[in-house]
Simulated scan of single mutants.
Amino acid sequence: MDLDKTDRALLLALQKDGRASIANLAEAVSLTETPCARRLKRLEAEGYIDSYRTLLSRTALGLGVLAFAYVRFGVHARELSDRFEREIQAIPRVVSCHNVSGSADYLLQVVARDMDDYGVFMRDVLRALPGVTSVESMFSMREVKRDVGLPLL
């Protein structure tokens, strides 16, 4: 189903504030509460809304390091990549993992308390994962733009 102007406005309002009440959402998209609630339920049912969540502060949680790790495999066997992907799901400090094209096989986004903590994680966890032959890390010096939601093109 195509999204109309009101659906798009509702989705944008939710991306800005996932805890907004139906009353506030209705006001933001110029609807009354009942039609707004019906639209929201329909958007959820049709899969436009994956989930609701809260973004936590890395700083408040003492996670001062944000690293991007390029992971490379020496052997590209399906069973190795399947096992790697299963194991990476269970590692909380890996906040995202993408199978990518180019010189690396995976791109991970990893958080750590400090550089020492990251170094121990690299040595004891990341390099020990199945299939991993090399890891190249880059560190965020400053976050310029945080996940602000998807554009509605």
Rank of each mutant, 00 (worst) to 15 (best):
Q89D: 13
M115E: 09
A104M: 12
T54W: 05
Y106Q: 09
G102V: 11
G131A: 04
E27T: 02
A90I: 01
M138Q: 13
D116L: 14
A112Q: 06
R72E: 12
R42Q: 10
S137T: 15
L63I: 01
R42L: 09
H76K: 14
R72C: 11
G64M: 10
A37R: 03
L80W: 03
A26F: 01
L107V: 07
E33C: 01
H98W: 10
S81R: 14
S57P: 02
R86S: 08
L107M: 14
D124Y: 11
R53N: 06
S137F: 13
L66G: 01
L66C: 04
C97D: 05
A26D: 00
S81Q: 13
L107G: 07
L80S: 06
R39Y: 00
H98G: 00
L108R: 01
D105V: 09
S96M: 12
F139G: 08
G119Q: 15
S81H: 11
A37V: 00
E33L: 00
E27P: 00
I49N: 02
E143D: 14
S57G: 03
A69V: 10
L108Y: 08
S140Q: 14
A77I: 07
F139Q: 14
E44Q: 15
Y52C: 06
G119T: 13
G62I: 04
Y70Q: 10
F73M: 12
A20Q: 03
L80T: 03
F68I: 07
D117P: 03
K41Q: 08
V144P: 03
Y70M: 12
S21K: 04
V110W: 08
G47V: 05
F73S: 06
A128T: 13
V94E: 10
S96W: 11
E87G: 02
T34V: 08
H76A: 09
L31E: 00
H76S: 10
N24I: 08
L129T: 05
Y70W: 09
L61C: 07
R42G: 02
V132E: 09
R93N: 15
L126P: 06
L43G: 09
L63D: 01
E85M: 10
V95I: 15
H98F: 12
R78E: 15
G131M: 01
